[in-house]
Design a protein around this nucleic acid. Structure first.
Lengths: 149, 149
DNA sequence: TTGCTCCTCACGTCACGTGAGGTGGC
DNA sequence: TTGCTCCTCACGTCACGTGAGGTGGC
């Protein structure tokens, strides 16, 4: 078929390869599709293999990273990623317009999204740093005592 | 009863208070007891209320912190806390002996435990820092573009 | 004594894990 | 064509959530 688009011909990865590349299981990938976290491709016949692009790999990596580092439920993650998708749409709008007022409005929205994510991340960072400090203090104490012997 | 020990008379907190202090639900506390993460007190009659000490509150806080920040399963966490308990026992041994050889051996073991925990924490820290850097870069880019308008 | 907190089942849920039995595609 | 990967149920599991119905203790 010569009518396939560039994006479709890119869809060359199979679920096992994606699993390998992202570090999750095929079951997890199917589950994320099931709950709407990943696109189902839309036109796959029953029983046929799923195909993925590099963009899918990137999205799964992003999901896994936020899931593991921020400890969010998949529902909250879903909302956060919707915002991410909205940002991608904003970027498209941004490039489509030349109007400075319009561009400023778009960039302001982007900034809000980025900063709300930053706050989540920095809160985590503070907690981790606190835990690290306590462990370093304990280690120092033990080392001091060892030196005294 | 005048034969109760100091530790027992300390057991004055109820499950709801502990839940409030630690930020978890009473169900979670009962569940942790169920799977052996928390001591069951041993001598409570069927249907009677559970009682807790400040030490229990501290332990639950530690569990929650490691659970949330390191993302460990409760089984792995259980093993890690066993090591923690072993360290407490080591400290007792440490104070019980005057022999420098013995003390050095105990301190060396403590050091190993602390450093394995530190590695877990620092790996997390690196991941979080990486994510933070990416977000800060994105923010800077957007701010630069805003300034250009 | 009253009201609130706690108790014990026991089923529900989220985020997958784990087969069973069958089919797709290099 | 063969072997490997993938497919779809569907039940299992971990870490709790959520009632139902009943009792404990200030």
């Amino acid at each position: 078929v010569t009518t396939t688009t560039a994006a479709e011909t890119e869809k060359t990865l199979r679920i096992g390869e994606v699993a390998e590349l992202t570090g999750v299981t095929a079951r997890t990938i199917r589950y994320y599709e099931e709950i709407g976290l990943l696109d189902d491709g839309g036109d796959r016949a029953q029983g046929k293999h799923r195909n993925y692009t590099q963009a899918d790999v990137d999205r799964i990596r992003e999901i896994v990273r936020l899931r593991d580092l921020l400890g969010l439920s998949l529902e909250k993650l879903s909302r956060l990623l919707e915002a991410q998708t909205a940002r991608a749409a904003l970027r498209a709008e941004y490039h489509a317009t030349e109007d400075p007022e319009e561009r400023r409005r778009i960039l302001d929205q982007l900034l809000v999204h980025i900063e709300s994510q930053l706050e989540l991340v920095q809160e985590r960072k503070r907690q981790i740093a606190q835990l690290e400090t306590e462990l370093l203090d304990k280690r120092k104490l033990v080392k001091t005592r060892l030196a005294e012997l």
